[in-house]
Design a protein around this nucleic acid. Structure first.
Lengths: 177, 177
DNA sequence: ATCCGCATGTAAGTGGTTACATGATTCG
DNA sequence: CGAATCATGTAACCACTTACATGCGGAT
């Protein structure tokens, strides 16, 4: 469901082809939503079928034609309705915690190694987010501010994860039962 | 994939029926993994088919018989192999951030309301996690410590989300472009 | 020569959700 | 008397992933 609206949102900024959408998704909303080409093509087909988007073939020479999609009035309405709709409680699944939960079956050294790998992943995530270019703060448009805020959210959670992993590791290293 | 191993993990502690598993999943790993009965029954059938678990019918009077499942030796091996296997990078989808990203299409008041709802959700999540009964710290077994740590992880992220929402709200309320 | 980028899609499978079906017992 | 609990499952659907298929043009 969300991908549908993420695509509507991106098309509301600029009309695009599926191929371009894939790249824009990766670079703009990539840190909180991922997808692949086949899903984008399918979703675009659904949007056209439901009258929320229209496609226009842009003929090109030497390379395949582009199917450029743009929002219809109904598409923009659907997007706005979604933005204002109730928030359904998010149940996020965390595969790592499932491992941690049963990790006492491993040797203590393996448990430490497990959390070290988690720590490393958190560091990489943090670095990737901090590497994103951002406009200078202060005097932003609302849209820019909100987009920056989604990045800040990722950073906040990556830092929380890192601090948690470090704390667990500290306690594990002094372990003696 | 993870549900399969979460069930193996729980069965490694006590043999159980699907019905009991549903309740145990909700109360033990519920804060980082959710599922429903039909999925549990399907997964159990798969585990039996693959020789990782065995079922035994426990006849009862006045109520339906229980299909109690217990791990096989191969099931325990599969569980341990999974625990030690490489961590595949987690790509978590965050529907709320998708909304926030396009929320400048709303009125400023609606944007504030959106983040207020998010804030409230974070508070509820935090309260639910803090309400979980925990053994007194210090002098824990490794397993208890790790289970406690998964709860701490949830608390850390709920606090991060709350702090983030508060910070965004502070900035939105002083907004004047 | 070989790979990468451009550009489109189909097919098959997995993991998860929702709805349906059944039927006895116990609690308010 | 109705609702909740015990206990099992099937069927259909949705979101997402992985693999496959095609073909031109430009860079290494």
């Amino acid at each position: 469901m969300t991908l549908r609206f993420a695509i509507l949102g991106l098309l509301s900024i600029t009309p695009m082809s599926g191929y371009e959408l894939k790249k824009v998704v990766d670079s703009s909303v990539g840190h909180f939503w991922s997808t692949d080409r086949s899903q984008i093509y399918r979703t675009l087909a659904g949007l056209v079928e439901d009258g929320l988007a229209e496609r226009e073939t842009v003929v090109q020479e030497g390379r395949p034609n582009r199917q450029v999609h743009h929002l219809t009035a109904r598409g923009a309405e659907a997007l706005d309705a979604w933005l204002a709709s109730p928030l359904d409680p998010e149940v996020s699944r965390k595969p790592f915690l499932a491992r941690a939960f049963f990790a006492d079956r491993l040797t203590p050294a393996e448990v430490v190694h497990l959390f070290e790998r988690r720590r490393d992943e958190a560091v990489r995530t943090l670095e990737a987010l901090e590497a994103i270019e951002v406009p200078t703060r202060g005097d932003l448009e609302l849209g820019e501010f909100l987009r920056l805020a989604t990045r800040d959210n990722g950073i906040a959670h990556a830092r929380a994860e890192l601090a948690w992993a470090d704390q667990v590791l500290d306690q594990l290293r002094v372990w003696k039962p």
